[in-house]
């Protein structure tokens, strides 16, 4: 076992897979020599050569399009989009091509590509370095969408993603890269060194796609969260003395419905969290599934706490971010509802 940050764990996953499989290629903007602006690919070009890890022109559509072409040839591209906010020029390639090529060719062609991208706010990145676009991917048939919340999962899930035969969107909550973050931005940054999930096994292992994790067991309310919001949920529950069952979804699509349903049937109450804007967010899907499958067990309406329906503001970042205070309020409302 080794202590790793999320950045190191992600790098290690690519390192392990590149070592095992010559078909794994890694590319993107600033990814080669420099090792990526968040340094997730540092050292990979030196170790595996310029033909396995290389810089790409600043054209996300071309990066994804070329990646799809390579994947259909038989490669396993694991490509980086510098910020999730920059993925939109590639959306046509992702939606109309990567997601559909298996279906429309009836399996003659497939695109086993992994598209990694840092997501979420908390770094004063304004509207171009803070967004959480998971719902625009979960809405597309043919894609898998993952979002790890810690180094252990990040490595195991990225390896699983690279080995998966379908296109995978791999969202990396950038505020978690160097440590768990509970939304208390005024506090000192905590590192992964002291967190149990900062322990990462060496070599190959996978965290299966489609499996959620119950990170806190509880009886009062079920909190459905992913990415940074897992830690916000923990802080909010603790600060309000609420015995919450916190589920880290990890894999948004495919979704681990059993874990969700079993928990909500037990607690009878549910709060759904995400950083992304509220309206038509992934929380709407979760809320719908919960009411459909747990209707007779619910003792309160399911509440969502999410980013406001505005572009991500720069100066008002902490008013925008759904921190422990807002989450705490929702938890109390749901728990206290008769």
């Amino acid at each position: 076992m080794a202590r790793m940050t999320m950045i190191e764990a992600i790098r290690d996953a690519m390192d392990v897979k590149m070592g095992m499989d010559e078909d794994v290629v890694v590319f993107g903007e600033d990814v080669g020599y420099f090792g990526g602006v968040f340094r997730c690919t540092q050292g990979l070009q030196k170790k595996y050569g310029k033909h396995r890890c290389f810089d790409a022109p600043i054209n996300e559509s071309a990066i994804v399009g070329a990646g799809i072409g390579m994947a259909t040839y038989g490669k396993r591209p694991c490509i980086e989009i510098q910020f999730a906010d920059y993925v939109l020029p590639a959306y046509d390639q992702i939606v109309s091509e990567a997601a559909r090529i298996r279906h429309r060719s009836n399996g003659q062609f497939t695109a086993p590509i992994v598209i990694r991208m840092p997501t979420g706010g908390g770094i004063f990145g304004g509207q171009t370095h803070s967004q959480s676009p998971e719902a625009i991917f979960t809405h597309v048939s043919g894609l898998k969408t993952l979002i790890p919340s810690n180094p252990y999962d990040a490595k195991g899930m990225l390896i699983a993603a690279i080995e998966d035969d379908d296109p995978v969107i791999f969202l990396e909550p950038k505020r978690l890269y160097n440590g768990p973050f509970d939304g208390h931005h005024e506090n000192a940054v905590t590192s992964w060194a002291k967190h149990e999930k900062g322990e990462v096994p060496e070599g190959h292992y996978t965290v299966p796609i489609g499996k959620a994790e119950v990170v806190e067991k509880g009886m009062d309310v079920t909190i459905l969260a992913y990415g940074t919001m897992v830690y916000v949920a923990q802080a909010a529950a603790k600060e309000n003395n609420i015995d919450a069952e916190i589920i880290d979804l990890r894999s948004l699509l495919p979704l681990d419905l059993d874990t969700i349903v079993n928990s909500v049937k037990k607690t009878g109450r549910c709060v759904v969290l995400h950083e992304a804007t509220l309206t038509s967010g992934f929380g709407a899907e979760l809320t719908s599934l919960v009411q459909q499958h747990c209707f007779n067990h619910l003792e309160a309406p399911v509440l969502r706490v999410a980013g406001w329906d505005t572009p991500y503001p720069h100066a008002q970042e902490w008013h925008y971010f759904p921190g422990p205070k807002r989450v705490g309020k929702a938890l109390k409302r749901v728990v206290e509802a008769q």
Binding site: G125, G126, H129, P313, H314, A315, Q316
Partner: peptide, 10 residues
């Protein structure tokens, strides 16, 4: 006094 009311990056 930010003419963009804090909406946009510096």
């Amino acid at each position: 006094k930010d003419n963009l009311d804090g909406h946009q990056l510096p």
